[in-house]
Structure formats: C-alpha cells, structure tokens
Nucleic acid binder design. Structure first.
Lengths: 218, 218
DNA sequence: CATAAAATTTAGGCAAAGCTAAAAATATGT
DNA sequence: ACATATTTTTAGCTTTGCCTAAATTTTATG
C-alpha cells in the first residue's frame, strides 16, 4: 500500500461516517484536495486491489478489506497523536500534521508497543476513539453542545472540528476535555449560549457549540 | 526532499566515511541496491539541487549542504533507534528497518523532543554517535577487536556490521555493548582468538573480531 | 421531455524513480 | 599503444500519482 492509497482509503472512511451510501468522486476530490479526474484514476486502482466497490458514475464504497485498512491507519494516527501529547508534550493543536506522516509507518510491533507504552488508551487527544488491533473501538454517549437543552450539563469529551484555530480558541477559553460544562442560557436569535466552564462563565457562538462534544450528565 | 533523495544522500555519506574522494556510480548503485543508470539519473537531480558535486564520469561527492542533510537524516535514524530500544523494548537487531522509515518524518520539534525524552544520548544502540541538531557528534577512541594485541582488554563499544544475524550472534554469546572483553590468545593460522567476556570465555573467528569495536583500556 | 448544467470519465501529458539495452568514455593488459 | 574490458551515460520504456482539456453520462430544469 502506498501512502497515497492509504490516504484515499482514510478519506473515503471519513466521508462514509454516519451513512453507508457511496461517496461521489467530487466529494472525495474535495476531501483529498485534488481533482476529480485524479480521484477516478486512484479509485480504479483501489477497486482492482479489492479495497473499494466502484462502478462508473456510481461513486465509491469501502469493501470489508478496505474498512480494515482504514481502521488500521486511523489506529496508528490516533495512537501517534496520543504519544505526541502524552510523551512529547505537544499541544493538541500541533499533533495532526506530524501524525499524518507517522500513520504510514509500517510495523505491527511498533504500534502495539506504542499502545502498551501509552497504557492502551481508548481515546486520542481530541476525544476520538482509538480502534484496537482488531479494529474495534468504544463509542461513547456524546452530543454536540449545540443540541443540548438549557440548564443541562455534562463533561467535554471531544471536538468535531479539530483544526488548530478551533483548538487554540478552546485553550484560550479554558475549555479542555474532561472539564465540566453547563448551559446557563441560550439566545434564540443567533443560537449563541452562555455557559459555565469549571468556575467561570462565557458566551459561546453557535459555531463553537456545534463543534464541541459533551457527555450529558444523566 | 523526497525519501529517495534522502536515502541517496545518506548512502553517499556512508560510502564517503574515512576518505574524501568521489564515490563511483557503481559503488553507489551497490549501496543503494539499484542499477548504475538509476544512480546517474538521481545524481543529476541532486547536483541540480546543490546537494552533491558531480561531473560526468568523475563520481560524486556531497556538498556542504548535502553533508548537513545527511547528518540530519542520520541524527533522526539513530535517535529513533535509541527510542525503540529504550522506550519500546525493541532488541538492537530489530530497530534498523523501522528506523529506516522513521528517519524520513519531517518535524524538527518532534526530533528535538525525542532527543530530550531520551536525555540527549550520544550514541545509538549499535554504538554509533548521534549528531546533535547542528550536526556535531562525539567520536570515541575505539579499535576493531581484530587489531588489538594479545592480553589487551577493553570495553565493547560498537559494531561495524549491524546486520541482524551478527547482532543475534553477539546476543547468543553474551557480548553486549558496555561489557568488558579481554584477548586471552590469538591463533596465528586463521586469526581466530580466545576471549574473556565478563566471567566466561569463548573462541571467536576473525570475521567476528573484525566487526566488533572495543575501547582499549589504557 | 428536451435541453442545459453538473458530475464524471477519458485521453494525453508531466515528473519521480526505477528498469533494460545500447552507446560512449575510461581503464587495463600485453 | 592499442585492443579489450569495464564503467558510465544515454535513450527509451514503465508505474504512480497528479494535471488539463475534451468527451460522455447523469441530473436538474423549464
């Protein structure tokens, strides 16, 4: 498997999340930041290797085998992110780029030892689940902050957008995974909200609330 | 820089060790396990990028810039090897392949943090010096065991051949870096020798002795 | 339902990195 | 010194992965 092939597989997997319909060439081109014609080329190669189902003009879907490849790459990516944060003191907005490179290193032993070194973590620094070596992972009860009712509260457990700019915004506002968050008030007009994080409060736009996952308190 | 370019630069550096003469196309092809015609192609590219001096039929030499690139790749390679042994319990015969991949990861921060995590090691698991971030490294007083006189003794500090088979041989015979070694006797006929390692003795062929570095006791 | 718009594929090219076979330059041996 | 052997380069082809432009298929619209 080339790096490029692995990246396409991962791209298809991400676009497929929450829906098992075929992914369009254009959508995949968008994800991969490339041209549709390049996608067509690659998708044919992947199809010949049995990693995707592909019929002309019908879009693309991962095969069983392709899904396993995707989960392996994602496992590596997320374990490396955890390593960078836990062992090398990277901040959570710095890890993605480096993990994009590290995820292509081929060594089962390496990744299993890394897993052990980190004490078999279930989630990466952004709250995304880390598949185990068989591709299984824990899903957790979480909702976007924007979907929660006034006065409800919970624990911040993940981000939907993991861009550096969003993560830095969260840092500046003392919002970190594991923190308790409570919705004090919601503004119907623009859907902004007033929240309490730990012991101080702030106003949050809808865009922010729609990218932060919270595990609601029962 | 592509991985392939980095590998060629590293290959030229290794062949240049102990001698500043130009490296022949054939020699480099041997090192890179490729054909001379492929070497010619690559060497032209590297020359255009200012990484090597190259004149047709005259062989190739690293420029100042090329040498810095080589030292950076070697630094990464050796730091990763140290990491694999120290933190992930790899044995010294398992690290090379994985480090060949890891050495191409591009992130200054990553490599500096790794250096710190390992407490700024001077040598890798095979006893080779690790260049610092400016390309400087410590050389140490060492001789091949085969060149040392009868009754002399010293400490094992490195290997010339770091193939898995040689390293496994050393393991099986309780020869590890840091161990004291003493030459009890030399056989003039085949240059084999009788040595003491720690508190037991064994017979060693010339081929073994010619691949083990020892720091002689004064 | 015909036709325009959008999506997709094909065709043809390019650069990297390799290969083989042939040509050219250098080295070697008598 | 000259013929031969060896080394090195060139030329032309392959694959991967991308591109643009053109052709084709699907979809959407009046």
């Amino acid at each position: 498997m080339t790096h490029s092939e692995e990246n396409y597989i991962k791209g298809i997997y991400h676009l497929s999340q929450g829906g098992k319909k075929a992914i369009s060439t254009t959508a995949l081109a968008g994800q991969m930041e490339t041209k549709p014609s390049s996608v067509t080329d690659m998708v044919k190669r992947l199809s010949e290797k049995g990693l995707v189902h592909y019929k002309k003009y019908q879009g693309v879907r991962l095969t069983e085998q392709g899904t396993m490849v995707a989960l392996k790459v994602i496992r590596k990516h997320r374990l490396w992110e955890a390593f960078l944060v836990e062992k090398l003191d990277f901040s959570w907005d710095e890890v993605h780029e480096v993990a994009e490179q590290l995820e292509h290193i081929e060594s089962e032993k390496l990744i299993d030892r890394l897993d052990a070194l980190l004490d078999f973590p279930d989630y990466d620094p952004h709250g995304d689940p880390i598949p185990d070596k068989h591709g299984r992972f824990k899903t957790r009860d979480k909702k976007l902050l924007s979907t929660m009712p006034v006065h409800s509260q919970g624990i911040c457990v993940g981000v939907k957008d993991s861009s550096a700019s969003f993560l830095k915004f969260l840092d500046r506002n003392h919002i970190a995974l594991g923190r308790e968050i409570q919705i004090l008030d919601k503004e119907p007009y623009d859907h902004s909200m007033h929240v309490r994080i730990g012991d101080h409060t702030l106003r949050i736009s809808h865009q922010i609330a729609a990218n932060l996952y919270v595990k609601p308190n029962p």
